[in-house]
C-alpha cells in the first residue's frame, strides 16, 4: 500500500516565533518547526544526527540551524548536515492554510 500524507495542525503562523525554532511533538515524533527570516516555515526532525541535540533550540541563520550542542550546521530546507560534518535529518512538508500551519506526516 502506498503511504499517504496526513496534515496535522500545529498552530498559527502568527504564533510562531520568528528566527527561532518551536518544539512540536506529534505522538512519539519530535519535530522542530522554524519560522525563518524570510517568513517561510520549515519542519525537520528535532534530533541532531551527531549526538541527538535538540535542533529547535539552535541559532537559526537564513536557511540553516546550528545545533546547540556542538554547532553542526544543518539545512532546514533539505535536512542536510553541512561540511565538514556529514549526515542528514528528516524533513517534513509544511502547508499553510489561512493562518494555520499544517505539517504533513506519513501515515
Amino acid at each position: 500500500m502506498e503511504n499517504t500524507l496526513r496534515p496535522v495542525l500545529v498552530g498559527k503562523v502568527s504564533e510562531l516565533p520568528e528566527k527561532l525554532g518551536k518544539t512540536v511533538t506529534i505522538g512519539m515524533k519530535e519535530i522542530a518547526v522554524f519560522k525563518l527570516e524570510s517568513g517561510k516555515i520549515r519542519a525537520i526532525e528535532n534530533r541532531c544526527p551527531h549526538k541527538g541535540g535538540v535542533l529547535a533550540e539552535g541559532i537559526v541563520s537564513g536557511d540553516y540551524v546550528f545545533c546547540p550542542m556542538h554547532d553542526w550546521k544543518i539545512s532546514v530546507v533539505d535536512g542536510n548536515v553541512q561540511e565538514p560534518d556529514i549526515g542528514c535529518v528528516e524533513t517534513y512538508p509544511v502547508e499553510i492554510k489561512e493562518d494555520q500551519v499544517f505539517i504533513l506526516i506519513e501515515d
Partner: peptide, 15 residues
C-alpha cells in the same frame, strides 16, 4: 513564555 518555553503537543489521533 509561549515563544521560548512552551512545546506544542499533539497526541496521535486514532484513525
Amino acid at each position: 513564555l509561549r515563544d521560548l518555553y512552551q512545546t506544542v503537543k499533539i497526541p496521535t489521533e486514532t484513525k
